[in-house]
């Protein structure tokens, strides 16, 4: 008997009935909650397209059994923008040409949000690339992605200074 799954996704609380324990967090987000911004790429933890934040930390939702994160707060790409205003990481990806086809982009952006929150890479391009190594981009937009992460970190730091 599987207990009902409770998740708070982008601030909204959801209760989901599962027939069995197999669904991953990725499948619950896409198939049960209709949040298809999170992408299924490899479905094996190798590409990073499914990256979301669980309790503020970036993880591969394809390797997360949904029932094991029962009660968690989840942030997906749909939860970043405020009204019509893009999140600074989203805006930086647009302005720095950080994608081509866009399939990996939600995962890249969620991973970048996680990386910036971790606060270890700073503006060092090598550390940013290493910190984004769990997100593959078959269009190879890597130079733009690196620039976007650096740009976004500065925007977020600026916002923080202005809000103090």
């Amino acid at each position: 008997m599987i207990p009902n799954l409770t998740l708070t996704v982008n601030g909204d609380r959801h209760e989901v009935h599962l027939d069995d324990a197999r669904p991953t967090l990725l499948d619950v987000l896409r198939e049960r909650l209709g949040l298809t911004g999170t992408k299924k790429g490899c479905d094996r933890g190798q590409c990073g397209a499914c990256t979301v934040l669980v309790d503020g930390r970036r993880v591969n939702s394809c390797l997360t059994l949904a029932i094991s994160v029962d009660g968690a707060e989840v942030t997906t790409i749909e939860g970043l923008a405020r009204g019509g205003t893009l999140h600074p990481v989203q805006a930086a990806f647009v302005e720095n040409d950080a994608f081509q086809c866009g399939f990996c982009t939600p995962g890249q952006i969620m991973s970048a949000v996680g990386l910036i929150a971790e606060g270890e890479a700073g503006d060092d391009a090598e550390r940013i690339r290493e910190g984004m190594s769990g997100n593959l981009c078959r269009c190879a937009a890597y130079p733009g992605i690196t620039e976007a992460v650096r740009d976004a970190r500065q925007r977020l730091a600026q916002n923080e200074r202005e809000s103090v």
């Binding site: 933890g45 996680g114 769990g134």
Partner: peptide
């Protein structure tokens, strides 16, 4: 691994 995997 990757940062996402190391978080889990």
């Amino acid at each position: 691994a990757s940062p996402q995997l190391r978080n889990a």
